[in-house]
């Protein structure tokens, strides 16, 4: 699979609602106006993520990966440069509500709502509830192994289950773009492995463009079509590596020499 190609296995690019979007990050720089000295977080980031592609961003702490994700989401306005989304109708600066899903490091569920109500709540805000949406949610909960927990409250779930609920919540909107900010960073290694596999399965069924920020080199290589490495502050792209491993990927992929080579290469870059 080439750097700029659509994922393999003939996966249809696009959900039942709309096509996955191409993300073009064009010359984005960002400076925080901190107390005292302004902090340059990002410097001239240029990146194109193809529709349906799974791209991971790795880099040292404070390199601005999360800031970049928030700029793409439109939550932070960049000091310079712009982000353009290319959808079937053409390029746009801003996608309509619900077209961008965001998964945070913490699950950020509403503690007073059940699992079901938490998942359906974005659709209520968007005014997109209905039998079809409910069928999608049921299917997603099933895929995420949350069947039978619809009526549970978040505090009754483990950390791993809560994070799965927040992923299902993002996917239920059938977004064109999914942004994930170290979604598994707070979980133990075993849970992380399981969720990695589940995420790939969900992505396979509901194709969308994923931008995934992580600290873990193994996780990035395992999940991604492409891994981008960023330098310490101010963040710049120092490597853009295509991961040409067959899909679907099982956890054993990590024992293959090709996998180890990618990891070693990236580890060398991160020093």
């Amino acid at each position: 699979m080439g750097v700029a190609s659509v994922p393999s296995q003939g996966r249809p690019v696009g959900s039942s609602r709309g096509q996955a979007a191409r993300i073009r990050i064009l010359g984005v720089s960002h400076t925080y106006a901190g107390r005292g000295m302004p902090v340059k977080a990002l410097e001239n980031i240029n990146l194109t993520v193809e529709p349906g592609q799974f791209l991971s961003i790795i880099g040292p702490s404070g390199c601005g990966k999360s800031t970049l994700l928030r700029i793409v989401a439109g939550l932070v306005r960049s000091s310079d440069g712009e982000v353009v989304f290319e959808v079937d109708s053409g390029p746009v600066r801003e996608l309509p509500g619900g077209d961008i899903g965001f998964v945070f490091q913490d699950s950020v569920l509403l503690p007073w709502k059940t699992v079901w109500d938490n998942v359906i709540f974005p659709l209520q805000v968007l005014g997109r509830t209905g039998p079809q949406a409910e069928a999608t949610i049921r299917e997603l909960l099933e895929l995420a192994g949350l069947r039978g927990f619809e009526r549970a409250l978040p505090k009754e779930l483990s950390g791993g289950m809560r994070q799965r609920v927040s992923i299902v919540r993002a996917l239920a909107m059938e977004p064109r773009v999914l942004l994930m900010d170290e979604p598994f960073g707070a979980l133990d290694a075993l849970t992380r492995d399981r969720l990695n596999i589940e995420l790939l399965r969900l992505w396979d069924q509901h194709p969308m463009t994923i931008l995934f920020v992580t600290h873990s080199i193994e996780e990035a290589v395992f999940l991604s079509d492409r891994v981008v490495v960023m330098s310490p502050r101010p963040g710049r792209i120092v490597e853009d590596l295509a991961i040409e491993l067959d899909r679907p990927r099982a956890i054993e992929v990590r024992d293959e020499p090709a996998f180890r080579k990618y990891v070693a290469h990236l580890r060398g870059l991160l020093g």
Partner: peptide, 23 residues
């Protein structure tokens, strides 16, 4: 993050109030 979630959903002031802020 909940406020950011509402921003991504392009929620109105009232939706924020009733879905997130009051509870």
């Amino acid at each position: 993050e909940l406020n950011e979630l509402m921003t991504l959903l392009k929620a109105s002031r009232w939706q924020r109030l009733f879905h997130i802020e009051i509870p």
